[in-house]
Every structure is written in structure tokens, then in C-alpha cells.
Design a protein around this nucleic acid. Structure first.
Lengths: 248, 248
DNA sequence: CGAGCACAGTTACAATCCGTCACATATTCG
DNA sequence: CGAATATGTGACGGATTGTAACTGTGCTCG
């Protein structure tokens, strides 16, 4: 990985024209930087590394993860184009980031990044807003992990990934491995497989390719994610309306 | 709850003297405000409410939670004195906040709060830092929830709560109910009870009072939280040193 | 003061879901 | 083509959960 930005010269130029014209767009900070290419599987930085750089994802997907002492892996998030990576106001990164696919990144030294934030109220607002989105996403994952059944977890995950894709498309792209999904959802790879198979056998989704899941029955998927029983939800009739009390 | 701060007068005075003397302390923003008292169980604000206020906890404990459509409750964090509540840069609060105990709060209108942030670089830095701590805490909870066994979850929770207490004290104060703990850890209240009992019967903790758990064997507790089996860890001899490979 | 009540917490038991282990199948990459 | 990796499938046992009964504590109200 090259360190193109260690020279301050081009950055200064950018920041000055930013202050007038480009304050409306967050990625304006990065847009003049060359996108570095990173092969899939490569590590961008490690948890505990000194947080000296900020990145913008231009292309591809990354995973943010924490390693536990006993070797288990917890994936705390997936990063897609447009996301900022490594925005930290502590001195160290709090998680490791690895490329899931081939990735294109734009890099920015942290101290300059912070300088821009101090100088540009609009930019600052956008970063704050981004951080809040991140907080929100982190809490969404918390909610996801507290879900009881594997069915709920996986369907919620699919909807989460589907939301990131364009528009109403029911074709969900999953570049990450089953192991990644399992480590994100706090389950085993076997359970991910079995649950996927179950969804397929009920006609709720199809798996034309390892890394593509097509949602066939969106509403059914939604009701399972909401906590409805899969068997009940996949039956096409009298599912939502009738809800018998347990003691009736 | 009174709305003492709807008048701008006293706030202006504070902000001006802040700019010189008190920029080093975050709570200087709130310190001249009267602390409002809130009874336990009362709601401070609801998820989805317009985010018009920021609060500082002066005394007591609160819970931040999200309600799921099926009625389940997910607690995304506990708040203690010194914490800021409702710092959002979106227009709406993303979780509900309720008082666990009787609580004393200082209130600050959001737009003034943001004005101060814009004006005071030092303050801004501290808020950013606080947000990062929050992110870190959110991810810690994610890690906590991905832990497999109830033993690991509860012991990790106890250590988390113990860290917030002063110094080396092994007496952990738990003002929240078992239901709160269960909703935080993603388990049932019964499992919380059973696991607590198990820890007591192994002499690892004692429960002198419903809301107090005394840690008797800190190192044992730590090793359980790290993933070691409770039965193995609670045996006083040859526990940490020997680790036989599964296929030996 | 004590009966009655509500609520928090505990314990027991049965059902089940998930993780572990084992193996089959596919895909990728040299 | 063969090794390595990723994924799917099945059997089995154990841990967690739900149900339900029980205990204990604090509170109200007669």
C-alpha cells in the first residue's frame, strides 16, 4: 500500500477549495486522491494500531472485526462504498478491518482530516451525522444479536443487506463467506447453512449462486424477521390475522 | 419536569464564561443548571421523539432501550453519573431512556449545546471522544452478546459493572432488575437467576442483597468471562496453566 | 397490627433449538 | 488433476428456554 498522502502539498490545495465549493459533499475530501487497490483478504489495519489514517471506501466490501483471546472472531460490521473507515477520536483503532472483496480505498491522514473538521462546520455536521448512523447501526446489530432464533437472525440479516442494495431489488449480494455471516450473527456456519436451506425449501428465497440470495417472498421474510414462526409465516393463509391467546 | 432552560438568558452567561475558564470540563455546560429529579421508572424520552434536549446524569442510573414490535425489549445500555444522554445529530432519538433508580438530571437545549460545540474546540474534542467511547461500548455489547454461554455473558456483565465502580472494590452495585439484566444480555430472567445461583454455589460470588453482588474470586470470574468452563475454572487447582488440546 | 395483594426473584421439569462432530459435495487455485 | 478451501447435510447430546409452581418482600388498607 502506497503512502501518497504523506506529502502535505496537494492536501492543502484541496482544503482551500473545499472551504468554498465542496463543503456540501463529504467525499470531496477524498475525491482528488488516487484510489488504492487492496486484494481480498488483506488487512487494512489492526485493532490496537495507532489511528493515523482515515479511509473512504470507493469500491468493494470490508469487514470490521474483533478477535477474542480464545480465538473466536466477532464481526462488528460490514463496510460498503461511501463508508468512512477508521474515523476515531481515540488514539487507537478499536477493531481490525479486512477486505472481503477486492477493494478500492482513498486514504487521508488523520490530523489533516481533523483539521478539516475543525475548519468546516458543514463537514463537521456530516461527520457527526455519520457517527450517529454508525451508532445506530451498532445498536441495530445489538438488537439483531438479541433475537432468539436463528431464523430471525438470518432473515433480519438478509433484510439489512437488502436495504443497502439499490431500490426494490430482491437480489441480495453477499460477498462475504458463510463464516463471516456466522461471526456477524453469533452463530455457527452450520446453522447459517441449515437455516438458508430451510428458507429455500419453504420457497422464501433462492440461492442461484453462493454469494447471491434472491428474496422471493419479501413479506414472509419480513414477518419472520419480526419474530413470527417460520412454519406459520410460510403458510400462505390465515397467518397474520389470527392470534389465539395461549389460555383460550 | 420543569423547563427551566427555555429562557436563553442564563445560558448565554454560562457560555461566555465557559469560553475562557471552563472549557476544560465538559460538565461546565451543565453545572449551573438546577438538577431535576426524576422518580425511578419514569421515562425521560421515547425512541422517535424529536431530539430537542441533551441531558447530563448527575445522580442515579438509567437504561436506554429499544422496543421491538412483538413486545420484546432490548436494553442497549445503562447510563451512570457523568454520562451524556440524548446527544444525537439526527433529528430524532434512536432509543427510549428510562430511570432505573431515582435520578438527578441537568438539561440543556440541543441547539445551544450544538452552538457551544461549534464555538469551543476543546469541548468539541471531548464530545467526539465521548462518542467514540459510546461506539466502543456499543461494540463491547456486541461482543458480549456473541458470547456463547450464559455463564460467560453474566460474568462479563458483572466485570463490566464492576469496572464502573470505584477502584478495586469487589462489591458490585446492580440497581437494575433481573429483567433489565436479561434484556441487556439477550437471555431470559430465569437463566439470569439460575446462572447467578450457580456462581454462588461455586463460591465465586455472594448475593448479600438483591441489588448487590460481591465478587469473591475475581480471577476465577475473569477466566469464566474469557470463555473457560465454569466447572473447570471454579476448581481451585491446576486450572489456568494446563490446557489440553481436544485431540490429545 | 396483620391479612391480603402485587411483584421480583427462585427453582423444577420437559421440550427444543443449537453446537459439535463427522462426512459428503463443490469450488478455487496452483 | 489434486490439494485446499468453502459449503451443505445428518445424527446426537447438551444447554437454554418456556411453563409453571413456589418463595419472599414490601405495600395497602381495613
Amino acid at each position: 500500500m502506497s503512502m501518497q498522502l504523506s506529502s502535505v502539498q496537494p492536501t492543502k490545495r484541496i482544503s482551500t477549495h473545499d472551504a468554498t465549493a465542496c463543503a456540501a459533499n463529504l467525499s470531496s475530501l477524498f475525491v482528488d486522491q488516487p484510489a488504492e487497490s487492496v486484494a481480498s483478504g488483506r488487512t487494512i489495519f489492526w485493532e490496537g494500531d495507532k489511528a493515523t489514517q482515515v479511509f473512504e471506501v470507493a469500491e468493494g466490501m470490508l469487514r470490521a472485526l474483533r478477535l477474542l483471546r480464545d480465538g473466536r472472531r466477532v464481526i462488528v460490521g460490514f463496510l460498503k462504498p461511501g463508508d468512512l473507515v477508521g474515523v476515531s477520536f481515540k488514539d487507537k483503532y478499536i477493531y481490525t478491518v479486512e477486505a472481503v472483496t477486492k477493494v478500492a480505498l482513498r486514504r487521508f491522514p488523520r490530523h489533516l482530516f481533523e483539521g478539516e473538521i475543525a475548519r468546516q462546520p458543514k463537514l463537521r455536521e456530516m461527520i457527526f451525522s455519520k457517527l450517529c448512523d454508525e451508532m445506530s447501526a451498532a445498536q441495530d446489530q445489538t438488537v439483531l444479536l438479541s433475537r432468539r432464533s436463528a431464523d430471525e437472525k438470518l432473515t433480519s440479516f438478509l433484510l439489512l443487506m437488502a436495504n443497502r442494495q439499490i431500490g426494490q431489488h430482491v437480489e441480495v449480494n453477499l460477498p462475504m463467506t458463510r463464516q463471516d455471516i456466522a461471526d456477524y450473527l453469533g452463530m455457527t456456519i452450520e446453522t447459517v447453512s441449515r437455516t438458508t436451506t430451510k428458507l429455500v425449501s419453504h420457497g422464501i428465497v433462492a440461492v442461484p449462486d453462493r454469494h447471491i440470495i434472491t428474496i422471493l417472498r419479501m413479506e414472509t421474510l419480513r414477518s419472520i424477521a419480526r419474530g413470527e414462526d417460520l412454519e406459520a409465516a410460510s403458510a400462505p393463509t390465515t397467518t397474520n390475522k389470527r392470534r389465539l391467546p395461549a389460555n383460550a
